[in-house]
């Protein structure tokens, strides 16, 4: 047995003794399981990972997050009220194999589509919140994702709420063709109106944010934050390498690359994201 595993296990039981009131939430077999950091191979208990907002304590690798995990690291407990939860893309067209893919993604993520939208609170500040899940067909934007985001923007406009969207997407969804593409125009148009109404919009770009999502609502935030090392860009690396016939540097299209070139306001470690958002929201309170 891995000695580090035992050390961690001991530490965990000690922790549980010290904080018995927490034990009811944490005493599950899943918490004791060990995850290897894909970036530095550091072993981490699921418990530690949860406590660290799913960031590797060794190398700060940010593990991809599902919507539930993201909510637990980000919003005030039980504050998230989901909207359009049942909106579904099944049978939207007859593209071969598409419904099977959707079913698979729904099973994997527990979501009906690649974005969850709702009203939530961060540090007591009420917001309209969208969270994308990259595990759902690459977080791609089809008609329903575009529609849900547009509806969320419209709700934020009407209720004069700040808007926060965490992006994670490979771009427009191929299986819905040109109708996916035009969702870029739809979401951007809704944001233009939100902007004219004086709405405050923060985007948090997470890994990956590319293609049609980066070239629409992701890049239109009044403030654009990014998670460390997130891949952010428009065209795919391979396409570009083919065009310019040379290999691109490792750092190409990372959050750090964008920060350096002026396209991102701040890179924020996930463990500090809630605090940063809370601060920004408080500075943009609208006095009625």
């Amino acid at each position: 047995m891995n000695p580090q595993f035992n050390t961690r296990k001991e530490r965990l039981s000690l922790f549980q003794k010290l904080f018995p009131q927490r034990s009811e939430q944490t005493k599950t077999a899943a918490d004791l399981s060990i995850v290897m950091c894909p970036s530095c191979n550091h072993p981490i208990s699921q418990y530690d990972l949860n406590a660290q907002a799913h960031v590797c304590p060794g190398c700060r690798y940010h593990f991809p997050l599902g919507v539930q995990e993201r909510l637990s690291t980000l919003v005030d407990p039980k504050s998230f009220k989901e909207l359009y939860r049942s909106a579904n893309s099944l049978k939207i067209n007859t593209f071969p194999d598409y419904d099977r893919k959707l079913h698979k993604a729904q099973e994997l993520t527990g979501l009906k589509e690649a974005v969850a939208c709702g009203i939530a609170e961060i540090d007591g500040e009420k917001i309209a919140l969208g969270i994308m899940d990259s595990r759902f067909i690459m977080g791609s934007m089809g008609q329903i994702v575009g529609e849900k985001i547009t509806r969320l923007i419209e709700v934020a406009t009407k209720k004069k709420l700040p808007l926060v969207i965490l992006t994670a997407s490979g771009g427009a969804r191929m299986q819905e063709g040109v109708l996916s593409l035009f969702q870029m125009a739809k979401t951007s148009a809704a944001l233009a109106r939100f902007d004219e109404a004086g709405g405050f919009y923060i985007t948090v770009l997470t890994h990956p944010t590319t293609g049609g999502v980066s070239a629409s609502f992701a890049m239109l935030g009044d403030i654009i934050l990014a998670e460390p090392k997130a891949l952010i860009g428009f065209a795919g690396r391979r396409v570009i390498e083919k065009t310019i016939n040379q290999q691109l540097p490792e750092s190409f299209q990372t959050a750090e690359f964008l920060l350096e070139r002026g396209f991102v306001d701040r890179i924020v470690d996930r463990t500090a994201l809630r605090q940063t958002l809370g601060q920004l929201l408080k500075l943009h309170r609208r006095h009625a």
């Binding site: 870029m184 629409s216 890049m219 239109l220 860009g233 428009f234 065209a235 299209q253 070139r261 396209f263």
Partner: peptide
């Protein structure tokens, strides 16, 4: 990409 293709398209939309 260095000069912000995504941002330019988004801003245009």
């Amino acid at each position: 990409e260095e000069r912000g293709q995504a941002e330019a398209i988004a801003a245009s939309l």
